[in-house]
Amino acid sequence: MTGQLQIDRLSLVFRTRHGAVRALEDVSLSIERGEILGVVGESGSGKSVLAYAVIGLQDPAAEVLGGRILFGGLDMLAASEQARADVRGRELAMIFQSPRTALNPIRKVGRQIEDILRQHANVSSGELRRHAINALARVRIPDPERRYHAYPFELSGGMCQRVMIAMALACSPFLLIADEPTTGLDVTTQAVIMDLIRDLSRSARMSTLLITHDLGLAGEYCDRIAVMHAGHVVEVASVEKLLDHPAHPYTQQLLGATPTPQSTIEGLTAIPGQLPDLRHDLPACRFSARCARRVAACEERPLPWVSIGPDHLVRCQVPL
């Protein structure tokens, strides 16, 4: 069965003056309808590159070496720019980190939502305003008629993020990509925004790709989690399995380094070493240099996908 979004063996490099940066290698993921999939990793792991590749907004220096991105039957990489532009904003929407910089600072937020509707939805110009106010009301912005006239600087960070979500959801997309939607927001605001994203996803049967560095956040809101390390997806599993029975050594160490409401300073463990330089020749398993379980087989290519159980995949020769 094919999901809403299917990423097949995607490899992507950035051509730079200092050599090719192998940002994604052999990345495969799929999202079912109505599912929330978390992509978790440290900075530099390639999670944002993946999100931008899916929506087709990657940097000009990016070059796709291989693989496919299928979105509801459309091959996003082979499709024309026009075909992709038709999908973007309507069937595929994205919300960005730091909402205040992602919004147009000199345009009223209501107008910005109208721009999206005018571009992508079949709404008559007389109806635009009513639809925009409805979109604001849907993300539980109090007093939407008044907020329609607000400029981004007049709104708090949490309010701006709600406007972003309202814009993204204005055309009822099938897939929402949320790139660190609550980074920089207060923990109380984060909880409200994440509840909102979860409730809207559930009620509209929308799929959500949640990019985050916070394993705790992904653990509370996602159905499944994919862990990324240095451009590889190293493990994909349901939240329960991934948190309770991690199979990849990196996942286990990431869990050990993440403070939770239950952890102690003695129990908190650091991950030795650092991310490899993606410009250099890399071993088959990009974690092997940091891994205590390394064996000779770790050098063998290709790096296998090992199935641990139903819907639990790990890229490791010696999984836990």
Binding site: V187, T188, A191, V192, G219, E220, Y221, V239, Q262
Partner: peptide, 17 residues
Amino acid sequence: SAIPDPARRGEQRPRLD
């Protein structure tokens, strides 16, 4: 109550709006 906690997944918790 706003701290993300996988152990309390799916619980409807009071939120501060």
